[in-house]
Design a protein around this nucleic acid. Structure first.
Lengths: 212, 212
DNA sequence: GTCGGATTGTGTACGTCGTTCACATCACGC
DNA sequence: GCGTGATGTGAACGACGTACACAATCCGAC
């Protein structure tokens, strides 16, 4: 990862500076959220002068957006992985509901395990129009938003969710888990005990399950 | 408000510097969220040297927290006001449900009307333990969290919400509307049309109403 | 009244940040 | 093999948060 990043390189050209900067930004975001991404520090760990960054990013915000995309991809991975581990019961209806819960749980687990990356992934403004951009997908090639959408489709197919309630249902489910995540890691619910957070998570998923 | 703040004062002592700094910070937060609060600028509009701020706040973060409290109070006012304007139908059950919707709608209206203040109010880390602190209350003396809690109590009294589901129900309702607010003003749902946001808001309130 | 300490504001300074401009170095296609 | 565009450098500017020593003022004890 940082094999030839930190030691002062011999070549004039870096070779893969853009990636190196994103990786450095990623590490900072992981430790302290999007606000902790500092451009000069990224160039420093890449062993390059501060201005070199401007050959690859218009400004600090552009670097943040790139890091945000990587973080979203990682969130997608966590979600896919959780889905893959889910045993199938045989009944499509209960399976679909379990899968929706799993997606929500994975989202909130990611928020709590990697709060810095979570905020970097989902708290950096960018229109929905670009939420499908492939740079935000995980290894599976799907973005978190697409994963959620697919599970909601399963719910419709299984006859659990009435088709007329399907449109934009992503926004409802997403809002609920996202809100709890933000309140817990970066808002007034900061400092709640792990036990209380976990029980609240399940209750929240109950609510979505009933109310969607 | 800024009557004797901007013109260079004659007295050595400012007189009410703390308030002046919070007011200046409030204005900045309104325009650009918590990140836009800059300590030096606040002292500048207060007509005072940069370090004077440190007599009233330990650091920039302390100023932010103070501004956050004021913003929370304003959110509380919006919520109380919306509740006060609600006509009573006579039926306690439908009234209670309407009041919960009204609280949610007010929260989201505040988020969209004053995104900077919204983020300053609810996106600055602080434990729940202090969410009842009176400096965050509105003119009514209640904090947003308390207002929501009271409406949920009404739901139980009216027989709409089973008592066993009442504990911590604040977190569920709050998470939902908070999540939508954050996603819309500061996340991947940024740029959704007003129409779509409003319809999504109603659907979200439907979901909470059904699922709580 | 006055005097001494606690409050409150000032001046100067340091290190860091994002960003700009002119310039240096390199890779590659004609 | 040469020049043109891409990439990295150096020095600099104006912010910012914050620390330290010092000055002005207020207030209560005598």
């Amino acid at each position: 990862m940082s094999e030839q990043a930190v030691r002062s390189r011999s070549t004039y050209r870096h070779g893969d500076l853009r990636r190196a900067l994103v990786e450095a930004g990623f590490a900072m975001a992981r430790a302290g959220g999007p606000g902790a991404i500092v451009l000069r520090e990224a160039t420093r760990t890449a062993g390059v002068s501060p201005n070199a960054a401007y050959r690859h990013f218009a400004d600090r915000n552009a670097l943040m957006l790139a890091v945000s995309g990587v973080a979203q991809g990682l969130a997608a991975d966590v979600m896919e992985q959780t889905l893959a581990q889910l045993p199938a019961s045989g009944d499509p209806a209960t399976d679909a509901r379990a899968r929706l819960r799993a997606v929500g749980r994975a989202y909130l687990r990611f928020a709590r395990d990697e709060p810095g990356l979570f905020r970097t992934a989902f708290s950096v403004p960018e229109d929905m129009a670009r939420a499908f951009a492939p740079d935000k997908a995980g290894e599976s090639g799907r973005t978190p938003f697409q994963i959620l959408g697919a599970v909601l489709d399963e719910l419709v197919e299984a006859g659990v969710l009435p088709p007329e309630r399907r449109p934009n249902a992503e926004f409802l489910a997403w809002s609920s888990v996202h809100g709890l995540g933000m309140l817990v890691i970066d808002g007034p619910l900061y400092g709640l005990t792990d036990d209380l957070i976990e029980r609240t998570t399940e209750h929240l998923l109950d609510m979505v399950d009933r109310g969607l």
